[in-house]
Design a protein around this nucleic acid. Structure first.
Length: 273
DNA sequence: CGGACAACCTGGCGGC
DNA sequence: TGCCGCCAGGTTGTCC
């Protein structure tokens, strides 16, 4: 899925068309895309509510009404977008949940793989308790990173993917950040030096910020709410570049398996001790 | 606690 | 062209 930069891009793109709009009705064709409450209760409760704010927490999209919060997780292939009156007949066989808005437009949750979901809560902690800090927030500092990763014995890659340690980093940006910080993904998280942690801190913030500036990475399914692609995929240093030359040293990029995830790295820039 | 793996699903791609 | 196996941005739960 979309990771932090992609979700942030979706959130920014939805504010203009959604804030101030009132949901009139809800249509669905896949019950499990609506996690809570049951679809009929969900539709009844959402109908008549007006969108007051759109925010992001980790990889969750928060659509705030007066009391309730509509939470959306895109998982691997989810999309959230608004179609206008003239495009209302556009077909999207994967748009499993559709919110009819006042003014004639429609908010769609589309998800070919059906891993994602929409749900209704009154507090984000109901679905995502104990999430780690936002990596781009002021509360995230090198010492916070050190404190949070050093208590884990597993690989640094696995720790970066753990949303309870740090919220929002996924498989692509974990590989990119580790390459930028010159740290091998299989290094033990508790064995990193202060200097390495400082580099990793800067690298995480840099790759995520650049990802947002480029409006996300369109690998496969991700699209911005307006339907166009982001640009971050054209700037990957290692992700999806197996066999190609490292942009830093020219050595071939290797792909392996770490934490059960495809993992890309440069053995020259990111040596194991 | 950590690691391996299955589940949840479908589509795209490479190989034969 | 057709079929088959494998891979995929995430998260959660189970088992050892």
């Amino acid at each position: 899925m979309p990771e932090l930069p992609e979700v942030e891009t979706v959130v920014r793109g939805l504010r203009e068309p959604l804030i101030g709009r009132t949901i009139q009705s809800v249509w669905w064709d896949w019950t499990k895309s609506i996690r809570y409450p049951d679809p009929h209760s969900f539709a009844a409760r959402v109908s008549g509510q007006t969108v007051r704010a759109i925010e992001r927490r980790a990889k969750y999209i928060l659509c705030r009404f007066d009391e309730d919060i509509l939470v959306v997780h895109l998982k691997m292939t989810g999309r959230l977008y608004v179609v206008g009156d003239n495009e209302i007949l556009d077909s999207d066989r994967w748009a499993h949940v559709r919110f009819q808005l006042d003014g004639g437009r429609q908010l769609r949750f589309s998800d070919s793989r059906k891993f994602g979901f929409v749900t209704l809560v009154t507090d984000i902690n109901e679905i995502a308790p104990s999430l780690g800090p936002e990596p781009l927030s002021d509360e995230f500092t090198p010492s916070v990173l050190k404190m949070r990763i050093s208590k884990h014995q597993k690989s640094i890659k696995a720790v970066l993917l753990d949303q309870h340690v740090l919220a929002g980093v996924g498989n692509i940006y974990a590989d990119e950040a580790l390459h930028m910080a010159k740290i091998h993904p299989m290094r033990g998280a508790s064995g990193l030096s202060n200097e390495e942690i400082a580099r990793l801190y800067t690298a995480i913030r840099t790759v995520l910020s650049e990802g947002i500036e480029r409006e996300g990475a369109s690998v496969n399914w991700y699209r911005k709410p307006d339907g166009t692609s982001g640009d971050a995929q054209n700037h990957f240093a290692v992700y999806d570049r197996e066999g190609e030359a490292c942009l830093t040293c020219g050595s071939p990029i290797y792909k392996t398996r770490v934490a059960q995830r495809g993992t890309h790295f440069c053995a020259t820039c990111q040596p194991l001790p």
